[in-house]
Design a protein around this nucleic acid. Structure first.
Lengths: 137, 137
DNA sequence: CTTCATGCAAATCTTTTGCACGAAT
DNA sequence: ATTCGTGCAAAAGATTTGCATGAAG
């Protein structure tokens, strides 16, 4: 997966700096959406010194380059995940905050079945649709 | 609708202060999710002097009282809408940021049909599921 | 009169910006 | 060499907190 990200970056003549590589590696290695601050802490823990500003700028850059995606699952903190994963949804625990992926299901029966099979007690869901409204197109 | 909100508030012996009433009135009168800052500005425009802190505290209080709901449709800004509305989803324009409600649709055919009938050009959607995960229950 | 709500200022947290320096090609 | 990336410090935007005053029941 990282290989494909690296290939995409080369495609737009991005320089392969140590910060860029470390950030891509980290975001791709965790299995759920991660915030800029968690990236910062994660890098620090690996003794990779990357500045906060660089982390924010790099994450934005990677979103623009279609390597990462923004995920708004928590208030007031943008999370990022690989944009190269197949389309999926998230199961977010109200209690511990854990985020688990489920592949795209639009059919209710299939959805409920999938969720039950994971032992997840569904309380609410949000289905936000993005695009261009009639008056803008 | 406001009447039911007022009734709920009386139910928990909340004091009917002018700030509380003005905030409930405002949030219920706009037709899409609104941020704390927009509430603040909206009240100012009506020459209702309510402090920023009060707005934030009141919105939290109304969420806790199940009169309002938090909606995370934009990064880094919590929006609020009536919790008394029937379950619905949102059509969010990437261009102008407008938010339009659509009632709950889980069936894809029905969904695509509803969206097309509104002239909305769907690009992406987010379906976030909240509840309790297996290890927490 | 007593509990609850408010205002103000300051703090906190996340993210952005300006500018000068440093590194990759 | 030139362009792109980085660090630092400071600013900006959203939200929270502490504390003292004020209003509703």
């Amino acid at each position: 997966m990282q290989a494909r990200a690296i290939a995409l970056l080369r495609g737009e003549n991005a320089r392969m700096t140590h910060a860029r590589k470390a950030i891509v590696d980290l975001v791709f290695s965790v299995n759920s959406p991660i915030s800029a601050i968690s990236v910062l802490k994660g890098l620090a823990k690996k003794d990779i010194g990357v500045n906060k500003t660089t982390v924010y700028r790099e994450l934005s850059y990677l979103v623009k380059s279609n390597i990462l995606k923004e995920v708004f699952i928590k208030p007031n903190s943008i999370h990022y995940e690989s944009a190269l994963l197949p389309h999926h949804h998230h199961l977010i625990c109200n209690n511990c905050g854990s985020v688990e992926e489920v592949d795209c299901v639009i059919n209710e029966r299939k959805l409920l079945q999938k969720i039950k099979s994971k032992g997840f007690d569904l309380k609410t869901h949000k289905f936000e649709l993005y695009g261009t409204c009639a008056s803008c197109s």
